[in-house]
Design a protein around this nucleic acid. Structure first.
Lengths: 256, 256
DNA sequence: TCTTTCTGTTCGCTTCTCTCGAACTTCCCT
DNA sequence: AGGGAAGTTCGAGAGAAGCGAACAGAAAGA
């Protein structure tokens, strides 16, 4: 009833390790057979077997003995994204937003209690970030994520905190449960969230919710370097633009 | 030595079926337990087991008994893409290309003998396509793919044809081996490929290679509706713009 | 309201296959 | 030429996936 995942009583362990291997390749930025074997504490032969299978299936790329995550996942991910109505509707508005502000425009949705960057449009002044489209982040560490949390029913937020915790990303991250709920109440009331270097140092961010009736479908934000994103510019210039974009997206989302 | 995948002698079958399941969910645009069980000819209980496990791991989404491909794959795919130097370098130029032409600008790379759309930038006149970023396509069915094939060593092309065949997509698709090699020779010589409704009806496309020394790293194209993409406009306006963009990308690719 | 008939889900048993360590090979470095 | 470290192959044993039958639960119909 609560939409949360129920533990499978007989999980397919091999499927789990398969993904553990891919995730490890990701976190290591590629690995050799022995490296992987060491990191996951599995025999070399097993690691070898998995990697060869994954490579043969096309999900992993091998060159000079180093195995890496393949672009095949982009096919699955891109497909999943293309089915998301919000993505289709939001893209043109995000483009406009990136153009008028010159900064990054970001779109985030919740899935399985984590935030997924559905899209990112780069403005002409935007500096390259280390983050990428599709990246999965903890909800409490970003303005976007907090905006989503603020409009989710209390029990779901509780469930998410229980499952994922509140680990710190920088010294500014909210790590206290009560403090977080206070922040969320404020965000809900004023319909906007700030992120002052909470996830990435030197980066500020403002986010607004994208609602469909009473439900939140995602959050939209503009982010840029602290130097250019001062309080005044955020409130006077960025926020109005954000709200305008969010409104249009909300309308197009339900319409047609 | 030839970079081709060698068959694993003891493939991890469970990993294979895991991905077969996800791919099936994709091709069916979501499925219930029994639907999946029927399509793959596996017992309901097994299908159930896999789906629950995948859902628990976060790779599949369930709502009202229907399981779908999750956005989690976008995290892996986006990560893989972000590591691709060509992607980073090409994006700004593609943006410019989409703006000046008003059409779609597309970037494709080869992986495992198939073409992957690394990026797509939408111009203001561009009509929405059914295809999505990350989509994997047969190389011989697009101008982009043929461009890549044209600059690949002959034996690799042979290997790719052997593995994937030359199935037709529309009535214009090249399905004959010799005919294809003739076309490739022409493309190699003139450094451009046309696609006249070969993959999608009503859609024309011009592509140019992106080279790094003698090796091809990808292909860049502009595509639009037949009505706007006549021979004259392609040769007079589009092609020069494409070449300019490709040149800049090639330079930035090696430099720094 | 009581059937009927779909789902999805649980439960063991059987069988297949994944696991794992050891042995073999290949390559590089000394 | 020899030592070390990587990848790879192999076979036996343990363990997990496969499978059908039975159960539960919801929806549709009488």
């Amino acid at each position: 009833m609560d939409g949360n995942s129920t533990e499978p009583n007989t999980p397919v362990k091999t499927a789990q390790t398969t993904f553990r291997i891919v995730e490890t390749l990701k976190s290591l930025d590629g690995a050799t057979v022995t490296e992987l074997s060491g990191h996951l504490a599995i025999p070399k032969s097993s690691a070898h077997n998995y990697l060869r299978t994954l490579e043969h299936e096309g999900y992993v790329i091998e060159s000079d003995g180093v195995y890496e995550v393949g672009l095949r996942f982009l096919d699955l991910g891109g497909y999943a994204r293309s089915r998301d109505r919000l993505y289709t509707v939001a893209t043109p508005e995000m483009k406009r937003l990136a153009e008028t502000t010159g900064e990054y425009a970001n779109l985030l949705v919740e899935e399985h209690g984590r935030g997924v960057f559905l899209a990112r449009e780069r403005g002409e002044h935007a500096v390259s970030l280390d983050s990428y489209t599709g990246q999965s982040v903890r909800l409490h560490t970003t303005a976007l994520g907090k905006t989503v949390l603020a409009f989710l029913p209390r029990d779901r937020v509780e469930a998410i905190i229980d499952r994922h915790g509140l680990p710190a990303k920088t010294e500014h991250t909210i790590t206290d449960r009560d403090e977080l709920f206070e922040a969320l109440a404020d965000i809900r009331q004023r319909e906007r969230a700030y992120d002052r270097e909470e996830r990435i140092k030197g980066l500020n961010c403002v986010a607004v919710p994208i609602l469909s009736g009473d439900d939140i479908t995602g959050a939209l934000s503009v982010s840029g370097p602290v130097s250019r994103m001062d309080e005044e510019r955020i409130d006077e210039e960025i926020l109005p633009e954000l709200r305008r974009a969010a409104n249009i997206i909300e309308l197009n989302q339900t319409h047609s």
